[in-house]
Design a protein around this nucleic acid. Structure first.
Lengths: 347, 347
DNA sequence: CTGAAAGCGCTTACAG
DNA sequence: CTGAAAGCGCTTACAG
């Protein structure tokens, strides 16, 4: 089946009527509509997207831009696929298709996005891995294309986003560790400029302040969010003269490497050092002692993000009335054994 | 900047000339071309994709369909993002963009693909997670859209694909284990109908046969390709009266759960039971004893798949002349400690 | 080297 | 309720 013209000829009616029947317009004879639908189904006709888009000025496609940067490739561990599931569950209600736009390693994300926007292959965009300062917000705002970000940014103050509550995680972790008697609490931060790292460390600093604990930059270790990164964090902390009694890791995979390195030094997590990690993951369940971590539904975060986006699109906003278009997504602390001891004053 | 018309008016030349200049056609005055290019850059003009596609009948977009099935979401662990990197490195040479088409959980993959094909939003398609019998091959062949599959299938006998060498892995693993004295060798198989499972088990059976070892169906354990799956495999094998002395796992994450379960029973991998696993992964590096596994470059597999696809597209085939459009991608065995012992006859 | 015009496949006012 | 026609933004023979 080539196009609507062939289908119309086959049915011996005009293409206008075929189009109206297919698109569920009310002013079509029910008998005619049935014939058209049946013939389309039988001949496998589906409207050419370019033709539709050109005429309607809309593609019915939403793009999710992802950067498969080296670090992400090793670590996003299906975070994006899970978010995607949540997004789709909302978009499918409106017959909107989600496509993922992976920015190549060797292309500048800003230029890539510019190109995608200009080509008009999507009606709206979701960007991820927001940087502390992220020019993409201005680009999208200027292009007047609806968008939302997975992750807040200093550049996104007025724009829609949803983000995991890294600040809350840092606070809850510090509170818990302080309650267990810790004062020397280390933290890992990502090695990139991704904004979540700044938020995480800021939250950590303010939490320390609340407890009257001095901030010590030596206890903030930048490392990759991977097993190797965790190994490196432990290694660096072991070198400190006045090391920490507790550590908060920003990514659960790091715990695997962290455990390994401290154990090599005869230090047992949950006994000699407290470990708390963001975020719960199946693989971390196998760690011994069980990791204290934070749980959330990434799928539901996708749902939230989709609704935020639709609420900013004129065609759908009436179905998603909401005041706030910025959501800090909560996480729940899951106590494990990795920090289940009370620190007694040793030195 | 709205469209080519505005750009042409701005330059006071015809849209035809603008188009020709932008598309690098030879019959354009160099002076004119420069002016056009400069104005386009300055005003941020990029051709509307729908307009181009409709006229040219080509989108310059390649789609990679992925199924974020529950099992995949937990396990694909960036396999796809890495393949994507390889694909893009080839496609970018031809100004082809790759988009990922994630089939929603609640939609039938066949229907989803049908819809994507009919809408003509991509020039060619790559499908993944090929099933043993996979109707999508026929659909794509009938639709006359160029395609290639990541993973072979019984349905794909004449069609282009690239696939990891599961058969070779099974053979190499069995050979090695037999050389170490093992005769009771268990294997894990995926719980889904994904074709790689069948190929893996077939290779295992034929390898056993070569060594004159009877095939025992009790030693083939179906389980999810996850930590939990590995735990379950170990658990089931421990219940056997005449258990195995070695096991080959189809996914490295399983080793984490497998180790844990056998260790709970006081059985030490690499001493009491031999473990070989497919595939090398950063996180498996932290297992003790080190896992014997198989290494390959998934990025290069993506490159290969991209070239296979382009060789079947008329517009690019001359640049990728090749006889074979089906590639079995090799893996290299990386010896670890998890099977580094010689079995002495115990019973 | 450039312009005018046709037409890709659709949807949608507009008549009737 | 249906048909004829315009036009979305492009590219590309075709004249000149």
């Amino acid at each position: 089946m080539k196009g609507i013209r062939q289908l119309a000829e086959h049915l011996d009616i005009s293409i206008g009527t075929v189009s109206r029947a297919l698109n569920g317009k009310p002013d079509v004879n029910e008998e005619t509509r049935k014939r058209v639908l049946a013939a389309a189904e039988q001949l496998g006709y589906v409207a050419n997207q370019s033709g539709r888009s050109l005429r309607q000025g809309t593609t019915n496609v939403i793009g999710l831009m992802i950067q498969s940067s080296r670090e992400t490739v090793e670590n996003s561990d299906n975070f994006f696929l899970t978010v995607t599931g949540g997004l789709q569950s909302v978009f499918s209600r409106h017959k909107l298709d989600l496509i993922m736009l992976p920015c190549p390693h060797d292309e500048d994300p800003y230029e890539y996005l510019k190109r995608m926007v200009a080509r008009r292959i999507v009606d709206a965009l979701i960007i991820s891995e927001t940087q502390r300062v992220d020019k993409r917000f201005d680009l999208l705002a200027k292009a007047k294309i609806p968008f939302a970000a997975l992750g807040r940014s200093l550049s996104g103050t007025q724009h829609p986003w949803a983000d995991l509550d890294f600040d809350g995680v840092a606070n809850a972790a510090v509170d818990r560790l302080v309650a267990h008697g810790h004062r020397r609490i280390a933290v890992s931060a990502p090695s990139s400029d991704i904004n979540l790292g700044f938020i995480f460390v800021d939250g950590y600093r303010r939490a320390l302040e609340r407890h009257g604990i001095d901030y010590d930059p030596a206890l903030v270790i930048r490392a990759k969010s991977s097993e190797q990164g965790g190994y490196q964090v432990a290694d660096e902390l072991l070198r400190l003269e006045n090391g920490p009694t507790a550590v908060i890791l920003i990514y659960e995979l790091m715990a695997i490497g962290f455990y390994r390195r401290v154990m090599e030094a005869g230090i047992i997590p949950g006994r000699d050092i407290a470990v708390v990690s963001f975020r719960e993951a199946p693989r971390a369940k196998f760690l011994q002692p069980a990791l204290t971590c934070f749980r959330t539904s990434v799928h539901d975060l996708g749902v939230e993000l989709a609704e935020i986006l639709l609420s900013s699109m004129p065609a759908y906003s009436h179905e998603y009335p909401r005041k706030a278009r910025q959501t800090v997504w909560p996480l729940e602390l899951i106590p494990g054994e990795s920090d289940a001891f009370q620190l007694t004053v040793k030195k």
